[in-house]
């Protein structure tokens, strides 16, 4: 089922942005975190990796980002530049489960970080970081330190930092899991707004059926022990999605389908 769905996407979209082939990951303590994953991510699509704790979805995401190489298999970036050793240098942004901000730096300085590291001139970096902060709704908080911000605002800074370089792909590792539901809904809406505006490829790791259905065009359902891909669902609801969609029968139906697939996946 997995490979046929992936093949269909390849046919319709041409060359994928990322191509994961036969990837397994075994940790040094012997745990098989991920086994035999094949996955193609097309340019501009919103994909969720959905699964229970321990299904290797975060591990897979980190491998896609280049944090930890697969034990077996390859992750290829057909369209990305490569360095002299042949390693891909994809243009990506990453949002961790925690905001992962530098506590000693202001919101503006935190968002400037990717540009500072890339050697962008300071006035240029400042202007772009301020613009990005405004875009995530934090205009006026440039000089605030992370400890002066609420959990949701810190996450906004983290998203701004990930998007400030205008990456082709945004990888998110359960970014809103620690937030309350009201804030999470708000951030889901804003994330979709940013995605519709810039059309980066979004890979969103979550264990929430509702969140994955609300956000994505495609849900990759994973199962645990060992972590593997069980199903690849399409969510054919139109964007923009909003509170109306959240309360629609269509949404409820899609959630039920996704939930049953997940249940089946967990049962093995």
């Amino acid at each position: 089922m997995t490979s046929s769905a992936a093949a269909a996407i390849r046919e319709t979209k041409g060359r994928p942005l990322v191509s994961v082939r036969g990837v397994s990951k075994q940790f040094s303590n012997g745990t098989l975190a991920v086994r035999g994953v094949d996955l193609d991510l097309a340019d501009g699509e919103f994909v969720s990796l959905l699964g229970p704790a321990g299904c290797g979805k975060s591990t897979l995401l980190r491998m896609i980002a280049g944090l930890g190489a697969p034990s077996v298999g390859t992750i290829e970036w057909p369209t990305a530049p490569h360095d002299s050793r042949g390693l891909a240098e994809p243009d990506l942004g990453f949002v961790f489960q925690d905001p992962t901000l530098m506590p000693w730096a202001t919101a503006l300085k935190n968002v400037m970080l990717p540009m500072t590291l890339a050697g962008v001139s300071k006035p240029d970096a400042e202007a772009r970081a301020a613009e990005m902060l405004a875009l995530v709704g934090l205009k006026g908080f440039e000089a605030s330190y992370p400890r002066e911000l609420s959990g949701g605002m810190k996450m906004r800074v983290s998203i701004a930092r990930a998007l400030v370089t205008k990456p082709k792909i945004l990888l998110m590792d359960e970014p809103f899991a620690a937030l309350d539901e009201i804030t999470r809904h708000k951030l889901n809406d804003d994330l979709l707004g940013l995605w519709e505006r810039n059309r980066f490829t979004a890979v969103f790791v979550t264990h929430s059926v509702f969140e994955s259905v609300y956000l994505s065009q495609r849900i990759v359902v994973m199962a645990a022990r060992p972590g593997r891909v069980m199903a690849d669902l399409r969510v054919d609801a139109a964007y923009p999605r909003d509170d109306l969609f959240r309360t629609s029968a269509e949404y409820a139906h899609l959630c039920r389908v996704a939930s049953e697939t997940l249940k089946k996946a967990i049962a093995g």
Binding site: A134, L135, L138, K139, G140, L149, S150, G151, T183
Partner: peptide, 16 residues
């Protein structure tokens, strides 16, 4: 998305 000087979710602003 752009514009407001306070995040438009009341929860965030109050939690500051």
């Amino acid at each position: 998305l752009a514009g407001p000087s306070v995040p438009h979710d009341g929860t965030d602003a109050e939690a500051r």
